[in-house]
Each structure stands twice: as C-alpha cells, then as structure tokens.
Amino acid sequence: MSHQSEFEVFVRGHRGEMVATAAALTAGDRHLAEDLTQSALVRLYLAWGRARGPHAPAYARRVLVNCFLDHRRRAWVSRERSMHSVPDAPAVELADDPELFAALRELPPRMRAAVVLRHVEDRSVEDVADALGCSVGTVKSQTARGLAKLRAQLKDAALQGGNHD
C-alpha cells in the first residue's frame, strides 16, 4: 500500500476520534477543534515515515496535543478569529455540559490536556505521560490539581445559581 493510501486509511479510521479529543481539549470550541485536527493531520503526514504502523494513533495523539499547546502559545498574527459571531459550525458533536466546559476553560493548557486525556478519554496514566511528553508523576499531580480546580470552579458556579453538584 502506498504512503498516501495508508494515510488515507488512517484518516478514515481515526479522524473522528481526533476531532472528539480536540473538542474536549478546546473545551467545546468546535471551530478550533476542527482547525487543530487539520493541522495535526498535516504534521502527521509529514512525519508518516516515522508515525506509520501500530503506534500511529498514539503518535497522532501526541501531535494533536502539541498542536493544542502550540496554539495556546502563539501570538496573534492576524484577526482571522475576531468576529462578532461564530460562523457556521463544523460538524463536531459536543456533550451538553456547558458549565463543565466553562470550568475546563479556566485550567492552564497542560493541566487541561492531562485532565482531558485521563478523565474524558479514560487513557492510562502512562499513555497520558507519553502524549504530554512528561513523567507519570507529573500526570498524577496535574490531574489531581486539575480535578481540585474543577471542583472549586463548579462549586462557585453552583453558588451563583448553577444546578449541578
């Protein structure tokens, strides 16, 4: 099978999963989730010689997380994203928990990624460490602190009239 055919098969089989992960990483931003997935797939193709094979999904997850972290670090180069209202939403499905998405948005990017991969995606601590390029201990501390922050955020929201917890 050619390089391109293999990649095409991978996109068919794993793009949906990448978009779902990106939607959680971006705390429900459909447009950014789609942008990040597209960028990650381009990077993946450019590295396909190394990424191909049984470890391709894990490699793609690492690339996607890096795209998310890079995006958060990037300067604004243009006003592409400044608009009064969101244009037509891409077909990215989202869970209906705006309060929790809002709380996730308050977490620093790496902490958010750790919480999402561990508790939304149900990945093992080792897999999360691999995706974030850090130690297992760091993942444990980041997720513990992340959950504590989320609980505090949700408690505040509940005190202000929310109806969860």
Binding site: V11, R12, R15, G16, E17, V19, A20, A23, A24, A91, E93, L94, A95, D97, L100, F101, V115, V116, H119, V120, E121, D122, L147, L150, R151, L154, H164, D165
Partner: peptide, 17 residues
C-alpha cells in the same frame, strides 16, 4: 466521583468523516 462521571460524559462517540 460525580465530577469524574461528568468528565467521562464529555466524550462523544467518534463519527466517521
């Protein structure tokens, strides 16, 4: 915990492109 249950529920099924 309730929070972990809510986080798990954020995961939506992957749809085929």
């Amino acid at each position: 915990t309730d929070l972990e249950t809510r986080l798990r529920a954020l995961r939506v099924p992957a749809s085929a492109p």
